[in-house]
Design a protein around this nucleic acid. Sequence first.
DNA 1: TCGAACATGTAAAAGGTTACATGATTAC
DNA 2: GTAATCATGTAACCTTTTACATGTTCGA
Lengths: 173, 173
Amino acid sequence: MEGTGYDIKRLFEATFSHFHSASYGSIYPALGQLQQEGLISLRVEQGARYPDRKVYSITEAGRQAFVSELTQTAPSEQLRSELLVLTFFAHLLPGERLAQVLDQAARQYRESLTYLESVRDHPSHSAGIRFTIDMGIASLRAKLECLSTGRDALLAGHLTPPRIDTEEATCDA
Amino acid sequence: MEGTGYDIKRLFEATFSHFHSASYGSIYPALGQLQQEGLISLRVEQGARYPDRKVYSITEAGRQAFVSELTQTAPSEQLRSELLVLTFFAHLLPGERLAQVLDQAARQYRESLTYLESVRDHPSHSAGIRFTIDMGIASLRAKLECLSTGRDALLAGHLTPPRIDTEEATCDA
DNA sequence: TCGAACATGTAAAAGGTTACATGATTAC
DNA sequence: GTAATCATGTAACCTTTTACATGTTCGA
């Protein structure tokens, strides 16, 4: 339960990336504030190598505040998918662009999926972390399947003028 | 292709809700700005009933700008799930709280799913819209399945002290 | 030697929500 | 009569990202 701002950034990129993100611009100020509030403590490592490391650890007060926060707040969930905005207006787009975007999305999903699958069985992972990863995996697989099932219907309905009730995207079955 | 700010809000709530959201605080200023830029035009309906309606329509310039926007930007996707943050730290939480949160999430997912399934086959929906809905449906179903499969493992691993390598969340199989 | 990784931070700008302020109408 | 729906908007606030600024060390 200790680490630097840099470590936190890496943690976000490695383990949180499929459900949360944070940049240095929010991490470093937050660490400073938490320290002032006594929720984390600071130890400076003046290593011979690299710049000074500011290693933060959570305090007992911090742990309590964290658990209290997790316990009190109703968990919200927000997503903002420009991919789906795009497909929503698929009829306005040139078919090539649409195909390109769908394929690019599939590639990214596959990449994320591969990554999550590769880290899933790390023995150091708690059940909670594994569950979190499983949710990501399940969701990605579903989206990939939907993408591959719906792709042709989307592109086909595209070459004809946008007739609304002739084609079927059979992802849902 | 015309409507009021109020209509847009409803559209977001009804059709966009599973992948985007917007509040009046962003819709109304945006409409004002778009109008000044000539991308949408304004017609005021002084109906006998209700306050004046400001009905906006997209202009030809606006349509071009919109398509251009959709074509140029690489679609980003960001989600922020406090539910998964919570499960990530499941070992810190009292079991009751965890169960309550998981069940609440399942309820919300089921509700969204029911809604999406109910609107999916509207004949007025284009293939693009249907695809968008299908992605939502697929994703929700996967998450629900993962929730129900993983729930017991998460809660079971919970009563014992957080031993890390004894339990299995078998959502991924 | 050159790029990636290590390491910290700030300031400005962007983007968004919440809460407020107002008021008619319609359905129960 | 009272709640929901219709309808518009602003201002303050909050959160977050982006871009900047700086410098070392390690591996190829």
